[in-house]
Design a protein around this nucleic acid. Structure first.
Lengths: 345, 345
DNA sequence: TTGTAAGCGTTATCAG
DNA sequence: CTGATAACGCTTACAA
C-alpha cells in the first residue's frame, strides 16, 4: 500500500491565533494589520510582531467576501479564432506586460485569460466576484468576441483595446498623429510616391485612422494619397507581401511604403527585397507598432511605436475610474517615431 | 452639485434568491448547480432554469472561503532587474500564453504577476489563499529572484522554468537533444569548424546543457568542440555580437556558429554579415528558442524550438500534481529543428 | 482605544 | 432525495 504523503496544505494561521499570541481581540488584529489609525502604537507593535512570528497572512478570500470587493482586475486577451496562445501578436504581449505592471503599481492583482472563440468567451468576472472589472485586449478581427463583450450589459466595468466599435469604452494609440509622423518623415527624406498598404474598411479601427493620418500628411504636402488594399483572412505578413507584389505588378510608380502595421510592412519589405528593390535607397518602408521583430529585419524597420507604459496605465486607470463610478472617456496613447534603416538617413 | 451616478455595482443575486424562485432550499440550489448526483432531474431542471432566469452566478469568494481551495494558479514572471515589463524575452511571453491555455483547459484561473527586484518579490499566494500553487517563469540571471523563491519553504506548491538550481521543481526544454539536433544539422550540411557561442558557467542552466549537447555531437563526429564565451551583463544580442567579433579577431577558422539562444545567434549573425561574411555560404548560423524575430532576420534564422504547448501543459500538470500531493509528471519538453535560411540547404 | 458580535454567500455535514 | 444548520476567516458597525 502506498504511504499517504503528509498533508501538503500549509498550516493555516488565522487572525485568532495572532490575537491570542498578542493578547488582544481578533478584531484588533484585523485593524492593526489593516493600518487602522485608531489602534495605539504599542498594540500595533505587539500584533505585528505576533503576526510575523506566526507567519500570519490574511486570507484574502475571507477578506474579499466580507468587503465585497476583490482587488483584482481581469485581463482578457482575445486571440484570432483557433490561434495558438503563443502566436499572439507580440504587440499585445507587450501591452499585457505593461498592463500588469500598471495594475500592480496600483495595488491590483491581474487575472489573465486568453479567449478565442464562442466556446470560451467569458466575461462574468464581476458577477462571480472574481474581479472588480475587466480589460479586454485584442484584435478587432475577432468580431464574434466583440459581439460577445458588447452584450455584457450596463453594470459591467470594462475598458478595451482594439474594439471595432466606438461605442465601447476604448483606449487607443494616437494613430492619426503617428501615421502623419511616419509619412512626414518619409517626405522629409525625399520620398514622394508613397503608397499606404492597408485598408479603410477593416474592422481594425486603427487601420482606418492610420490611413487617414497618412492621407492628410500627403495632401498637406500637395501629394495624392494612394491606398494599396490588403486582402482579408491572411496572416499579416502575407497580406503585406501580397499587397507589395500587387503594387509592383500594377506598374504604378512608388518609392515609399507606409504599412499600417509592422508585420504588414515587414512582409512588404521582404517581398520588395526579393524582387531586387534596394531598401532604403530605391524604396523607403515604414511600419506601425514597434514590434521587436522589426529591429531584426534587413534593414531594420523604421516604425511608429506607442508608449506602452502609458497604454497600460491608461487602461488600468480608466478601469479603476469606472469601478469607482466615474464617467468613462476615451483616451489616446501618445506615439513616437523610431527611425531605423528602412528609410534613408 | 454633481449628480451622483446610479449604483454601479451589479445587483447581487444569491443562491437564496434562486432557491426561492425554484421553491427549494438554498442547499439544494448549491448541490444542483454543482452537479451533485443526489439531486433529482426535475429538481435540477427547476433550479437551473431559475438560476438562468435570475442570471445567477456563484460568488466564487464565498465558495472558495468555504472550500479552502481557490481553483487559481499564480504565474510569476521574473524579469531582469529594472527591465520594462514589455521588454521581456518573447520566449517567456509565448510560454506565458501556453501556460494560461493549459491552465484554462484544466479549469484553473491564472493570476499573473511580473516581478523583477526584492522590492516586489512575492510568492505567498497560498498563505493568502489567492492561489493553490505557483508557476515561476524567468531568466536564471535574476539570482536574487531565485534566492527569494528558493526560501519559500516546504509547504509551497510550485514549479519553475529557468531555475539556476537543480534542487528546484523545474521543467525545462530538452536542451541537450536540441543542441545535438542543431549541431548535427550543420555537420550534415558540410560545416566542420563549428563554434558554440555561449557559456558553461552561466546561471542559465540550459546554456550549459546546450553547450554539452553541441560538444557531444561534435565529438561524435570526431571533431573538437570550441566554446567562444559570451560576456555577462550585456543584453543577449550584444553578447552575440561581441562574441562573434572576438571570434573573428582571434583568427580562429570557423564556418559554423551555434548560438545557445536565438538572440545571441541573431547578434552574431548581424555582426558577421556586417563584416562581409556570407550567410549561409561562408558561415552557417543556428540558434535556440524559436523566437519570432528569427523568422525576420536576413537570412531567417535556423533554430531549435521547444514545443510550447507541451511546455505549458507540463508546467501546469506538474503543479496540479504537486497540489494534489501526487507524483509529478515528466520535466523535459521536446524540441524540434526549424530549418530556415541561415544554414545551407 | 479596544472588545463584541453580526454578517459576507457559499459548501458540507447530519438528519430526516 | 432534500432541508436545516454549522462552519470558512475576515471586516466593520456598535458598544464600552
Amino acid at each position: 500500500m502506498p504511504e499517504k504523503r503528509p498533508e501538503n496544505r500549509i498550516v493555516r494561521v488565522t487572525s485568532f491565533d495572532v490575537a491570542e499570541a498578542a493578547g488582544v481581540s481578533q478584531s484588533t488584529v484585523s485593524r492593526a494589520l489593516a493600518g487602522d489609525t485608531s489602534i495605539s502604537e504599542p498594540t500595533r507593535k505587539r500584533v505585528t510582531e505576533a503576526a510575523l512570528r506566526l507567519n500570519y497572512q490574511v486570507d484574502e478570500n475571507a477578506a474579499r467576501l466580507r468587503r465585497g470587493r476583490t482587488g483584482t482586475l481581469a485581463l482578457v486577451m482575445i486571440c484570432r479564432h483557433g490561434q495558438d496562445r503563443k502566436d499572439l501578436n507580440p504587440f499585445y504581449f507587450a501591452l499585457l506586460g505593461s498592463t500588469c505592471a500598471a495594475a500592480a503599481a496600483r495595488g491590483y492583482e491581474v487575472l489573465v485569460a486568453f479567449q478565442d472563440s464562442p466556446a470560451n468567451f467569458w466575461g462574468r468576472y464581476q458577477e462571480r466576484r472574481k474581479a472588480d472589472g475587466m480589460i479586454v485586449i485584442g484584435t478587432s478581427e475577432n468580431t464574434e468576441a466583440w459581439d460577445y463583450f458588447g452584450t455584457l450589459g450596463e453594470g459591467t466595468n470594462w475598458v478595451c483595446w482594439g474594439a471595432p466599435s466606438d461605442d465601447f469604452p476604448w483606449v487607443r494609440s494616437d494613430n492619426h498623429a503617428g501615421a502623419m509622423l511616419a509619412t512626414r518623415h518619409m517626405l522629409v527624406h525625399g520620398y514622394r510616391n508613397i503608397v499606404c498598404l492597408g485598408s479603410e474598411t477593416s474592422p481594425q479601427r486603427q487601420f482606418k485612422e492610420r490611413y487617414d493620418g497618412y492621407a492628410d500628411a500627403m495632401r498637406d504636402a500637395g501629394l495624392e494619397p494612394f491606398l494599396q488594399r490588403i486582402e482579408r483572412g491572411q496572416p499579416r505578413e502575407e497580406q503585406g507581401r501580397l499587397a507589395a507584389a500587387a503594387l509592383v505588378e500594377s506598374g504604378r510608380p512608388f518609392d515609399g511604403i507606409f504599412g499600417v502595421s509592422d508585420e504588414i510592412a515587414l512582409g512588404a519589405l521582404k517581398e520588395l527585397a526579393s524582387r531586387g528593390y534596394r531598401i532604403p535607397e530605391d524604396v523607403g518602408v515604414v511600419g506601425f507598432d514597434g514590434v521587436r521583430a522589426g529591429a531584426w529585419s534587413a534593414p531594420p524597420l523604421t516604425t511608429v511605436e506607442s508608449d506602452f507604459e502609458v497604454a497600460g496605465s491608461l487602461l488600468v486607470d480608466r478601469l479603476i475610474a469606472t469601478i469607482g463610478g466615474e464617467a468613462p472617456s476615451p483616451r489616446r496613447v501618445p506615439v513616437r517615431l523610431v527611425v531605423r534603416g528602412s528609410t534613408r538617413p
